[in-house]
């Protein structure tokens, strides 16, 4: 009995250990993927609030408000689903990496103003969405095991692809304006 209990305990530690040591996005489990998605959404909301505070461009404001609106909805649905499944998202190396990068970028963008800020924000939004969409489409969605979570991620991907396209247009327009002004 004691031996069986010890083996079970070791197995649990091993599983936890393995999950905690995941070093590739492909190794993340559903709860870790949920955590990454929630973190990524909150990061974009953070960037949007920064844009609203610094930028004076109405188009940047419109975009930022859409980011806040849409990412908040996705997060609310994700949390509702986790509550329904009675599980908690799990922190992991990728969430931590995203957060660290975001801290650096916020510090960098906070030092900018005017057109410099607008362009940096727009370019980052395009690059950020492109990178996240790639990860979600090629790695997360194929690996998610829970059907409801997979369906939510598929809907979210469609939203974020629209954001990526919008950001690309916005960045292109800003670059054009900047080069015409020079």
């Amino acid at each position: 009995m004691l031996k069986r209990t010890l083996i079970a305990a070791l197995a649990a530690v091993t599983l936890t250990h393995t999950a905690a040591q995941a070093e590739s996005p492909a190794e993340l489990n559903d709860l870790e993927i949920a955590h990454v998605a929630y973190t990524a959404d909150n990061i974009d909301i953070r960037y949007a609030h920064l844009a609203l505070a610094i930028s004076k461009d109405p188009k940047i404001h419109d975009f930022a408000n859409t980011m806040i609106r849409d990412h908040t909805v996705v997060n609310e649905l994700a949390l509702a689903l986790l509550k329904k499944l009675k599980v908690q998202p799990q922190d992991n190396f990728l969430s931590r990496q995203l957060s660290e990068n975001a801290d650096k970028l916020v510090a960098e963008m906070s030092m900018l103003s005017g057109k410099d800020f607008d362009l940096r924000y727009a370019e980052n939004e395009h690059g950020y969405h492109k990178a996240v969409n790639d990860l979600v489409g090629k790695t997360f969605i194929p690996n998610i095991e829970n059907a409801e979570m997979k369906a939510l991620f598929q809907q979210a991907l469609a939203i974020f692809e629209a954001h990526e396209a919008h950001a690309e247009t916005m960045a292109g327009s800003l670059m054009q304006r900047q080069s015409m002004a020079q």
């Binding site: 419109d62 859409t66 629209a162 919008h166």
Partner: peptide, 11 residues
């Protein structure tokens, strides 16, 4: 009548 979504202007 041409229209769009204000939040997602590519629509």
């Amino acid at each position: 009548e041409s229209y769009l979504c204000l939040y997602h202007p590519k629509m």
